[in-house]
């Protein structure tokens, strides 16, 4: 009797897992839990991503059409991460622990995420006395977007689409190097893919609509990048669902009202002025040029990752001085303190 089994290796993985001390939870999602772990031998800090363990032999799960065995997200994440190994702006995977049905991935620990751009102000804080204080330098906006574009051009060159690019999934190391993470939705591009991807405010217009499988391209990641740049300029989630007048306006409606060209079939009756939606973006000529090229309604007109990297003016703007870096790190730490105090 020969059943494929991983018992032999389980004991090995367990002894390896014992070398790491589980610390606080640093992330939680539908996929599972991310812990901060410390290596007992070297004292180095890592992140351990544990995927939710599926329940075997559960009659309920069978009826609910649930996944058994390895989760889809795990299959995707591991296959993409192994294909993208070695890129400086993509998160690396150090080790993998398999314990029966559970899979845990050991990755480098990144202390910050790009959510710092949602500071509620944008680049500058305006005080009562009329003096504006810069809180996030423009060079940081260019810096992160160039590094994300770097990772994307590498991924897209290998035909892989990330499909969940949001500030939460863009990690920053201590010296603010970008690490694109969470490949749970990433996949090799093909025809007829699931449209239920990307967190809503970062979702490209071609993904909205009915639930049928759609043909889309890596341009959806570029849209997400464009929204992140706009977010950073405005200091908030630009395309978040909002209350206006009597009802709520959905992300898709905001996109159509602000960015849909007049000669498009989906052109709205009344459009909104883009200057009201993203005033800070429109104020700066350089950012305006980049963002409008990324947020084009038609996917085939959108700037691609390698094209963005060829934009000399933008790449030059991405140079950060020590002072700029300290400013951003200070902001991040302030924000982390605020969040921590909110929790208690």
């Amino acid at each position: 009797l020969q059943t494929p089994s991983c018992e032999k290796n389980t004991s090995r993985s367990l002894t390896q897992m014992e070398n790491y001390l589980k610390g606080s939870i640093i992330g939680r999602g539908t996929y599972g839990i991310v812990y901060k772990v410390t290596c007992l031998k070297t004292g180095k800090v890592f992140a351990l991503k544990c995927h939710r363990s599926p329940v075997l032999r559960d009659e309920d799960t069978e009826q609910k059409d649930a996944t058994i065995g390895v989760e889809d997200a795990t299959v995707r994440e591991l296959s993409c991460l192994s294909a993208l190994r070695g890129h400086p702006n993509v998160i690396q995977i150090h080790d993998l622990f398999i314990d029966g049905e559970n899979i845990a991935m050991l990755m480098p620990y990144a202390p910050y995420t790009l959510t710092v751009i949602h500071n509620g102000h944008g680049l500058k804080v305006n005080y009562d006395h009329g003096k504006a204080l810069q809180v996030i330098p423009l060079s940081f906006v260019a810096h992160f977007s160039v590094q994300v574009a770097n990772a994307l051009s590498y991924m897209h060159g290998r035909n892989i689409i990330h499909r969940d690019l949001t500030p939460r999934n863009v990690l920053l190391t201590k010296d603010l190097t970008v690490k694109v993470a969470d490949m749970g939705l990433a996949r090799q591009s093909s025809k007829r893919m699931s449209p239920n991807v990307v967190t809503e405010p970062y979702r490209a217009p071609e993904l909205f609509g009915d639930n049928s499988p759609k043909d889309y391209t890596c341009a959806i990641d570029m849209w997400s990048l464009g929204v992140m740049i706009a977010d950073a300029m405005e200091g908030k989630v630009v395309f978040a669902e909002r209350e206006k007048g009597s009802g709520t306006v959905s992300t898709y409606d905001i996109i159509v009202k602000t960015l849909c060209p007049r000669n498009h079939v989906k052109a709205p009756v009344t459009s909104w002025d883009i200057d009201d939606v993203m005033p800070n973006v429109m104020e700066c000529t350089l950012v305006k040029r980049i963002v409008l090229q990324l947020l084009t309604f038609r996917e085939n007109e959108r700037l691609l990752a390698h094209e963005l990297l060829q934009d000399q003016e933008w790449v030059q703007a991405a140079h950060m001085t020590e002072e700029d870096k300290n400013m951003v790190i200070h902001q991040i730490q302030q924000q982390q303190l605020r969040q921590a105090s909110k929790r208690f």
Partner: peptide, 26 residues
């Protein structure tokens, strides 16, 4: 039935490990 299902699920993990999780390709 359950035994067979367990076999299929375990074999899936075996395939993943044998292929080093390289499961999407041209």
């Amino acid at each position: 039935f359950w035994d067979l299902r367990d076999s299929v699920v375990q074999c899936e993990l075996l395939i993943l490990r044998q292929l080093n999780f390289h499961v999407s390709f041209e």
